[in-house]
């Protein structure tokens, strides 16, 4: 009895503190999941750099200086310059802006599509599941690249197109993962119990299914952020992404970075390391978030 009572009273004392729920969450994040907090810090740093690129960057993103071409990192250009003499630091900072925007919006669209399709087909089952999932099968059996080339050649390259397309691609494929999770949650006794109290389908989806697939959705989202940033770099490489001279990390990596890999490795290293760091940071933060939000894994304070 005593050890059962402890968590409840603990929750009460922490509520009595003046701090709001957000501050309390941050405190828990730092105390219980230091690695996750580190990931969040890295990610916020990149986000800030991206948002403030206009202020922070020493040079314009497309400011050409033909005299200082392919210079190694120095005091004037901490990350060196590229084949057109553009300052790499500035380009990486502006790239953060584009990559973070694309990564987040496309992953968000993908997650929403996955959740809506997955929850509906998984919970309703039967004919709805049959019909929708055959469309998903058909969609997934097309090579992504073919689909992208066709669509981009019709509507033209550009950031909104890239975000929408990648969101749709990853979203439809991800609906399978959410659907699988929903099917296993649906069979739980508490879902039957909710039905026996007269709850409507919408209420059951919102109160009983969704909270129990949230851990999977969070992981899905964080892995998608990384995947989208990488996919965008692939698209930029074949000229279907955000068109140059816009400084996306993928574009830098596959453009000048690849051509001058041996003469000027910093051209590939700078965007490459940034890409790795952001993807890593988002992933560890996602893992921490999943653990903190799951009441079953919550340790007694």
């Amino acid at each position: 009895m005593v050890e059962v009572a402890q968590p409840a009273t603990g929750a009460l004392t922490s509520r009595r503190r003046d701090a709001g729920p957000f501050v309390r969450f941050i405190v828990r994040l730092v105390r219980e999941k230091p690695l996750g907090a580190f990931g969040a810090a890295i990610f916020l740093l990149f986000l800030a750099c991206g948002l403030l690129a206009d202020v922070v960057a020493p040079h314009g993103m497309n400011q050409i200086n033909p005299i200082a071409r392919l210079k190694p990192p120095s005091l004037q250009a901490p990350l060196g310059t590229d084949s057109l003499g553009r300052d790499m630091l500035s380009r990486v900072l502006y790239g953060a802006q584009l990559s973070v925007i694309i990564g987040f919006s496309a992953a968000a669209i993908a997650t929403v599509i996955s959740v809506v399709l997955g929850v509906l087909t998984g919970y309703l089952g039967g004919k709805v599941d049959m019909v929708v999932q055959r469309f998903v099968d058909a969609w997934m059996s097309f090579p992504d690249l073919v689909l992208l080339i066709v669509v981009v050649s019709v509507i033209g390259p550009g950031m909104p197109q890239v975000i929408g397309l990648l969101g749709l691609l990853f979203g439809i494929a991800g609906s399978r993962i959410v659907r699988g999770a929903v099917i296993s949650v649906r069979e739980n006794m508490y879902v039957h119990a909710a039905q026996s109290t007269g709850a409507s389908t919408l209420r059951i989806l919102w109160h009983h299914i969704l909270p129990n697939v949230t851990p999977i959705v969070i992981v899905l989202f964080t892995t998608r952020v990384g995947a989208v940033i990488l996919a965008e770099s692939g698209l930029s490489f074949i000229g279907l992404g955000v068109p140059p001279p816009a400084p996306t990390w993928g574009g830098m990596l596959s453009g000048a970075g690849r051509v001058f890999m041996y003469d000027a490795p910093w051209l590939a290293l700078a965007p490459g390391i940034c890409l790795t760091l952001v993807v890593y940071a988002v992933n560890v933060f996602g893992d921490a978030l999943r653990d903190l939000l799951d009441p079953r894994l919550r340790s007694a304070p």
Binding site: Y190, A193, S196, D294, P295, R296
Partner: peptide, 13 residues
């Protein structure tokens, strides 16, 4: 209705 298994009849989240 009251179900058989109280361990799983309540939503853990």
């Amino acid at each position: 209705m009251i179900f058989q298994e109280p361990m799983s009849s309540l939503n853990p989240t």
